[in-house]
Amino acid sequence: MGMAIAHAQASGMGGMRTAGDLVARVQLAKGLRIREAKQYVADRLHISVIDLVDPVIMSEVRAELGLGIMMPLGKTPKGVECKFNIERLLGFEMNCLKTFKVNAGLA
């Protein structure tokens, strides 16, 4: 597993520790290149692009907006609950919620 960990440390955005998962969602949904994808997320979160990879700033932002945090204790949004918040925040329909909404009687 050295490969995945080493790349994450050397070059990765940081996933849920930061805004890596959010930028990845924008790349996948909109096919944007990295600069545009980062700018899109920063604009939606009202933070600067450099803050997207800061685990201190992003932990607070994620906790406040219910986007999912690394150590989710009681009464904090988790999993699919966070995805609803992420979808609303990013402003586009996420494929991962389509089936859920149908199954849960939300669509």
């Binding site: 050397a10 070059s11 955005m13 930028v23 990845a24 790349q27």
Partner: peptide
């Protein structure tokens, strides 16, 4: 061990 400069991070798949 080395890494990208801050701000140059990219998405991993």
């Amino acid at each position: 061990f080395v890494g990208v400069d801050v701000g140059n991070e990219v998405v991993l798949t």
